[in-house]
Write a protein that binds this DNA or RNA. Structure first.
Lengths: 229, 229, 229, 229
DNA sequence: TATGAATGAGCCTTCATTCAT
DNA sequence: AATGAATGAAGGCTCATTCAT
């Protein structure tokens, strides 16, 4: 007679969040239509207003729901950087980042939403930046700084971080282009693993070259640019 | 080579194309509203359907118009790679790419449209890929191959190219994020110039590291990953 | 006379009626939302349909509930008109009418609902007219007839009654206008008392003038209008 | 070939304004539905957005359109108060007011809209008060002051004005009640004419009685209220 | 060639009501 | 007796497109 489980937390609500997450990730906030979302969720058109107040409220709920587990994962991995080399830590970082971003499953929705928010910001932009982008960026910055040593300016460390992130995000943003230019890349686990290795190698080389170039510029500014004829 | 019969090629038509180009670049195809476009062009609401059949037709016309001059520019620069070093050619490539992409002026509209098309493909996607992405990609590939030598596999050359392009595009896609993470970067000519130098240095280091790593992997495949403890 | 079987007449039901009464008075039937009503009553959204069948049912219940006590009050005052002068009885009538109408408290809800019903009739209109408007109107008519004597036609007595009622209701209907035109009037007890005195004086003068004018018209119908140059 | 008449001012626009005016007067802003209005006007659902931007815009247009002629009429009558007696001027005022308010035709829409706005204010309330209510109120105040002489306080003049206006508006607000209580009153021209005579006679008597009462109160405050046993 | 008006599908939202427990 | 979830009709509004001139 008594309801046994308070996991009763409205099945429809959950289905709405999941359906919406998928469509927001795939199509973006504006292109995703409430009617499609409720259809996917097997719910009534009025359900999103009932449960979330509005489409924006649903979006906020999607973020809140997925951010919970995302933050949990983030904090877990924060501790185990123990005695690893900086290069190994960069590899972990990049591999994790890419896996979450490129995995085709509804897992790691948050990473994909964060990526969307970068290209097509919504009202949640500030929150996303604060809660996800900054922390991740700081973690990366720490790794890069360790690799680069003290010789690299703040600005160049930032540049390197953005170069690393940019390489990764491109595979998510420009999926269709990648599919054309690099048809062998299938976004499978093995593909992602190999991509991670490339990005890490490329970026390690990039950081070290930046350090060298910067050192050279600082010491003898006659050598000018890195690339002369 | 010059179009012969545009003796009276309708001033309105031209103004529509220019106004539309700006709004498509800034807001994307869907977010740009034809009412706003005609307002900016000082034209009638019916003008776009009259001249171009539909919003998509207008978009196609915008691409066609800007592709003409873009291709012209591309072919000009194709020849003068003369006796320059591969590094210098990479610098030229990146600098030109970034300038066109990040410059705030209505110049180089095509580059910005191509970038848009990568993130938010429309019906024109195939055309864009064929006419712009492939050619540019091939040019980059040639440069990278020259730098890398014969030791790098086709796949890794592709990876390097995408790494270079990804670094650049990120500054265009994620303008708002860059503004948060790197507020000193102001998208001015000097900023872009310094960014180009970073990207070139980073990428040269990246390519060379890839070569080294790859060579190592090829010779003694027992060493496994590039970065373990 | 007392209802026998409301031993457990549902607390929620009562709270709904009270909350609804307030909102119907303040906002009218259509503008009052059942979600707001149940929120004010601390009840479930389904409660109004469960207890009253529909929003209209709730409205009917509100009327029924408040009409009971209202009618009781009416019948009490009906008898004690004893030896008072007609003018005093008019003063009592107007003062009571205005107090009930303009008092800001949840008291005298019925009077306010009746006023609402006059401007924005609902399905309950007929009932309201029969149970409240007619009785009160007849009471007023009797007073006016006594003041006017036999010389005033039925029609003019009706006119005078409506003039009196109209003066009073305006302060309820057009609260915002009164606030603009007569900002000193604050709807407090003292304000209402003074207003009652004005309305009574004005109306006594009005009735007597009507009698005079009518008498003049009846005797010498050549004089035409009451007011020519 | 040239369009002859620039009365072309969009037929639909005009029809929309007229249809909307009727429905706003009869049902009020909220109860009037855009879909009904466009149906009455024989227009498309999108027409009101096209011509007026929104439902509120349509309402504003209705007010603007009808206020033009209303103000014209007001200014015409302003001058001809020449050598008339105050009573005659009051008669003119009341007759005109009632005619505009109670006439069943779509004429004098403005007066009816102003009455609506008093009971159910919208965003246009302030404008309505400023442009219509205040001017008319001042005109009435001047007449009443002339009739009352210097002996009546500002406050009591205001009270008298509101008493006069209240009498008139009641017949518009409470049409259904009037129809029940006074079924002989048919809102025809003759009815309105007779009503005007009653209101004028009643109000003249009312004002004079107010003066007398006030004078009495001022001189010998022992006599107390107007209505003692 | 060019225009302003008109169209209708579709969007998000509101709300009284009903369902299942 | 009571609840929270779910429903669907309807509301105002947007927008690319088409019509009539």
């Amino acid at each position: 007679m008594v309801t046994l489980s308070n996991e009763h937390e409205s099945d429809t609500r959950q289905r709405l969040i999941e359906a919406a997450a998928g469509m927001f990730v795939e199509q973006g906030f504006n292109a995703a239509k409430v009617r499609d979302i409720v259809a996917h969720a097997g719910a009534n058109i009025a359900a999103v207003n009932y449960h979330f107040g509005s489409k924006e409220g649903l979006y906020a709920a999607v973020i809140q729901y997925h951010s919970a587990q995302a933050i949990e994962v983030l904090s877990q991995q924060a501790g185990d950087d123990g005695g690893r080399t900086p290069a190994a830590r960069l590899h972990d970082y990049v591999r994790t980042f890419l896996k979450r971003l490129l995995t085709q499953t509804p897992q790691f929705t948050m990473s994909k939403l964060v990526a969307r928010e970068m290209v097509e910001p919504t009202a949640a932009f500030g929150l996303i930046i604060e809660k996800f982008v900054w922390p991740q960026y700081h973690a990366l910055q720490a790794i890069v700084r360790t690799i680069a040593g003290e010789k690299l300016s703040e600005e160049l460390v930032r540049r390197c971080c953005l170069s690393i992130v940019g390489q990764c995000l491109y595979y998510q943003f420009a999926r269709q282009v990648v599919a054309c230019l690099d048809p062998e890349f299938g976004y499978g686990p093995a593909d992602v693993e190999r991509l991670a290795e490339h990005v890490v190698a490329f970026s390690l080389g990039g950081i070290r070259q930046s350090v060298r170039t910067h050192a050279g510029e600082a010491q003898k500014s006659h050598s000018g640019h890195v690339n002369d004829r």
